[in-house]
Design a protein around this nucleic acid. Structure first.
Lengths: 170, 170
DNA sequence: ATCCAATAGTAGGACGACCAACGAATTCGG
DNA sequence: CCGAATTCGTTGGTCGTCCTACTATTGGAT
């Protein structure tokens, strides 16, 4: 988390009040700012828990994706689709995982354009220990009961669907 | 938005199902991943809308904060507290705003350590036009009705409070 | 009165995400 | 069958965020 000491008031709520007074309806702005801020909090908590294991959340997600795959191996572009990442971000992440010997790059058997990424045994091991570290802190998400967590997921999934993040009903 | 074409299924939901089968309870993981992804979508939409005005959301927020202040002027550290940003991030943002002549740096009258940031007339103008651009796209947040937006804000505010982001009831 | 801890801001570096542009390989249309 | 459009991955650059470390200033403790 940012090394701030907490304010005695909610800065987002205060900004929303001023916005309402001086500009107009502030509900959407408040929701968006909340998402931005909560993402920042979660990212910070998660990255702190992963730092001892030399991972970030982005790299951890990539490892999990590979562990879940049949052969422990996926093409770069498929990883980008599943993780919703730009191709250059995939390159960046795989570079660092490879430097830590957690994955390997291999050529695709038939299509010489595509690069296959394969998780190593060290990668599988690292993913397990990192998962323990993350579940220990509940992924940084605190203050919600099970029903509220489900509600949050439902609302955000609805936003993603509306934004065209995916097409089919889940 | 990322230049992906949408998948025919929800990658987050699919990952949650696999997680449930192979690792354990996945509700928290799914919620966290949803927040990360929605933040990314919103950031992308908002930045795209602001790009013609040579602004990013971070810099826009800084401008709004200054517009809302009494004198159009705040110390760097206060900006950091309100925007929940690391001091170095504030330096970065103010640097760029200053390079665009949207703000100025002035010395504090009594405390020579602190730097005051003052919005310029051009800054006020830019904030107005950028606000129009953002409200036109609803800040990128689509697919929710008013009640759901309020619900989302309430849930996220609860998370921030639990994380110690601020102390008092709103 | 002086030392010392705390505070304010900045510099440099790491990391993730994006875009623009590129070379290489593949696929498609005529 | 061959040229053009597409796909795949990478490089180089921008931006925002954070961290560590540093200087300057302030203000309290002794």
């Amino acid at each position: 988390m940012p090394s701030h000491q907490p304010l005695p008031f909610d800065p987002i709520d205060r900004a929303a009040q001023l916005w309402q007074d001086r500009i107009g309806p502030a509900a959407t702005m408040a929701a968006v700012t909340n998402i931005m801020r909560v993402q920042q909090i979660l990212q910070s908590s998660v990255d702190a828990a992963l730092r001892p294991h030399c991972l970030t959340f982005a790299r951890y997600e990539a490892l999990v994706l590979l562990v879940f795959s049949r052969q422990g191996s996926l093409p770069m572009n498929v990883m980008g689709q599943r993780l919703q990442l730009h191709p250059t971000s995939v390159t960046n992440i795989v570079d660092r995982l490879q430097a830590d010997h957690l994955v390997e790059r291999n050529g695709h058997p038939t299509d010489r354009r595509t690069t296959m990424v394969t998780i190593t045994e060290a990668g599988r091991q690292r993913q397990k220990t990192a998962t323990v570290a993350l579940t220990d802190i509940d992924f940084g998400l605190i203050g919600l009961d099970d029903a509220q967590t489900a509600q949050l997921t439902a609302l955000l999934t609805q936003v993603r669907r509306a934004a065209g993040d995916f097409t089919n009903p889940s």
